[in-house]
């Protein structure tokens, strides 16, 4: 186990970091915000942490360096959220991709502060993979809470029918703000932790390919829950590893895999699992409906119908 672990350490690390990067896109997407600012936040988190570590004479705790990155990213995310508040859909996606690419150009032109084209190296810290795992577990815990109960339903309403959400008294704008801030936190955490694990960062690491990676993870895994991001992160990190037998053609196979996933698995792998579960639930519900109909109590039947309908709706 230990030998296997030593040999695959980088892939294990990559899985957790990819998970966080994916969350920075998936979290806003769940609230109907199609934003790629997560990649800009990754860059901000990584560069801030690197600058803090390299520029200070004493050894800096990862909490401080990564924390500084998160702070910067959250502030920038808040400002960005205000600036782009009118944009929706693909337009928002394009605007946030532009922001990410502009951040990359700034990193190129940052002179001594960012190390210019060579980027920064020698970002040494005592961060262990254990801490990264703890961060991921905590993130997953918090997200589980937002996906359940009233809060979960409110978020679904904000995404699926913002007008209805407004009429229900939900402050949609506040949710959108939270979406941006969440993206800032996850993105900068991923960037900060990655730079401490890898010890280098350069502008090529924070480019468009990261957008593509994150999007692939979410679409393959499923965007409705953090579980999808986790599934996607595992697949996207480890699949190429197992495609080694294809040698030169691994990229071709990989492309085909993504295409097939896009056509046939619109909800991601998580969606397939959900569908199977819901089909089961629906079958049960239909059974209950028949029993309820037999009761013949007018008021009672109406209530049961309403409940049944809403549960069916949910099961769809």
């Amino acid at each position: 186990m230990s030998a296997w672990y030593d040999a695959h350490l980088i892939l294990v690390q990559a899985t957790f970091i990819s998970f966080l990067v994916a969350l920075s896109i998936q979290f806003p997407m769940r609230m109907g915000v199609f934003s790629f600012a997560g990649v800009a936040n990754y860059a901000l988190g990584a560069y801030t942490a690197a600058i803090v570590v390299v520029r200070s004479d004493e050894i800096v705790s990862p909490v401080v360096s990564v924390g500084a990155g998160v702070l910067v990213a959250v502030v920038v995310s808040l400002i960005l959220a205000l600036i782009v508040r009118r944009l929706r859909g693909l337009y928002l996606a394009m605007a946030t991709i532009s922001v990410s690419l502009i951040v990359q150009v700034i990193a190129f032109n940052g002179g001594e502060l960012t190390g210019g084209a060579s980027g920064m190296f020698g970002v040494i810290s005592d961060l262990t993979i254990g801490s990264v795992i703890v961060v991921c577990v905590v993130a997953a815990g918090i997200l589980t809470w937002t996906e359940r109960g009233t809060l979960g339903r409110r978020i679904d309403a904000v995404r699926d029918d913002p007008e209805l959400a407004v009429s229900m008294g939900i402050n949609v704008n506040r949710y959108r703000l939270v979406a941006f801030v969440g993206s800032g936190v996850f993105g900068s955490l991923a960037g900060g932790l990655e730079v401490l694990l890898r010890s280098t960062i350069s502008p090529v690491n924070v480019g468009f390919s990261l957008v593509v990676t994150a999007l692939t993870i979410i679409i393959v895994g499923g965007y409705r829950s953090w579980v999808g991001a986790a599934i996607g992160a595992v697949i996207v990190t480890w699949l190429p590893f197992y495609l080694q037998a294809m040698e030169r053609y691994q990229q071709v196979i990989y492309g085909l895999f993504v295409v097939v996933a896009a056509i046939f698995v619109p909800g991601g792998l998580l969606g397939i699992a959900d569908q199977a579960r819901r089909r089961l639930v629906r079958r049960q519900l239909e059974h209950e409906d028949q029993e309820a109909a037999a009761e013949q109590d007018a008021g009672g039947a109406a209530v049961v119908d309403a409940v049944g309908a809403s549960r069916k709706e949910e099961a769809r």
């Binding site: 892939l11 593509v212 699949l239 190429p240």
Partner: peptide, 12 residues
């Protein structure tokens, strides 16, 4: 784009 391919880790 890097063809979305070289995202995780490739090995050969």
């Amino acid at each position: 784009l890097r063809s979305a391919g070289i995202v995780g880790a490739t090995l050969m």
